[in-house]
Amino acid sequence: TTIHVGDLTLKYDNPKKAYEIAKKLAKKYNLTVTIKNGKITVT
């Protein structure tokens, strides 16, 4: 599972963990989490 945050690309083997991290990042920086085709993007 890949999380895209701006220019950063973070890879995680565990999709659930990746989603949790994405949610935390989104909350911290007041951003939105988008999931599309298995890719998690924080914008």
Score class of each variant (00 low, 15 high):
T1L: 12
T1Q: 06
T1H: 09
T2Y: 09
T2Q: 07
T2W: 05
I3G: 01
I3K: 02
I3Y: 00
I3H: 03
H4D: 08
H4M: 13
H4C: 14
H4E: 09
H4Q: 15
V5K: 03
V5Y: 08
V5G: 02
G6C: 14
G6R: 02
G6H: 08
G6S: 04
G6L: 11
G6Y: 06
G6V: 06
G6M: 07
D7Q: 12
D7W: 11
D7R: 12
L8F: 11
L8G: 02
L8H: 06
L8C: 15
L8P: 02
L8D: 03
L8T: 04
L8Q: 03
L8V: 10
T9E: 15
T9N: 09
T9G: 05
T9I: 15
L10Y: 05
L10C: 07
L10M: 06
L10S: 01
K11L: 14
Y12I: 10
Y12A: 07
Y12C: 14
D13M: 05
D13V: 04
D13L: 07
D13R: 06
N14I: 06
N14H: 06
N14S: 14
N14T: 13
N14A: 04
N14D: 15
P15Y: 15
P15W: 15
P15I: 13
P15L: 14
K16F: 11
K16D: 13
K16E: 15
K17T: 13
K17Y: 13
K17C: 08
K17I: 15
K17Q: 14
A18S: 02
A18Y: 02
A18C: 06
A18F: 04
Y19A: 08
Y19S: 07
Y19R: 08
Y19T: 05
Y19C: 03
Y19K: 09
Y19L: 15
E20T: 07
I21V: 14
I21H: 06
I21S: 05
A22C: 06
A22H: 00
A22G: 02
A22D: 00
A22P: 00
A22W: 06
A22R: 00
A22E: 00
K23F: 11
K23E: 12
K23P: 00
K23G: 07
K23V: 14
K23H: 13
K23S: 11
K24T: 08
K24R: 12
K24N: 09
K24P: 00
K24M: 13
K24I: 12
K24H: 12
L25R: 01
L25H: 00
L25I: 15
L25W: 03
L25F: 04
L25Y: 02
L25V: 06
L25E: 00
L25N: 00
A26T: 01
A26I: 03
A26G: 06
K27L: 11
K27S: 09
K27R: 11
K27I: 10
K28G: 02
K28C: 08
K28H: 09
K28V: 08
Y29V: 03
Y29P: 01
Y29R: 02
Y29A: 04
Y29H: 09
Y29D: 01
Y29I: 02
N30Y: 05
L31R: 00
L31I: 04
L31H: 02
L31W: 05
L31Y: 03
L31V: 04
L31P: 00
L31K: 01
L31Q: 01
T32P: 02
T32G: 04
T32C: 07
T32L: 10
V33G: 00
V33I: 14
V33N: 00
V33D: 00
V33C: 04
V33Y: 02
T34I: 15
T34N: 09
I35K: 07
I35R: 06
I35Y: 07
I35C: 08
I35G: 02
I35A: 04
K36Q: 14
K36F: 09
K36S: 14
N37W: 08
N37T: 07
N37M: 10
G38I: 03
G38T: 06
G38L: 04
G38P: 01
G38K: 06
K39Y: 14
K39D: 14
K39E: 15
K39R: 13
K39T: 15
K39Q: 15
I40T: 02
I40Y: 04
I40Q: 01
I40K: 00
I40G: 01
I40W: 02
I40C: 02
T41L: 14
T41D: 06
T41I: 14
T41W: 15
T41P: 00
V42N: 00
V42W: 02
V42Q: 00
V42D: 00
T43E: 12
T43F: 11
T43Y: 10
T43W: 10
T43D: 05
T43H: 13
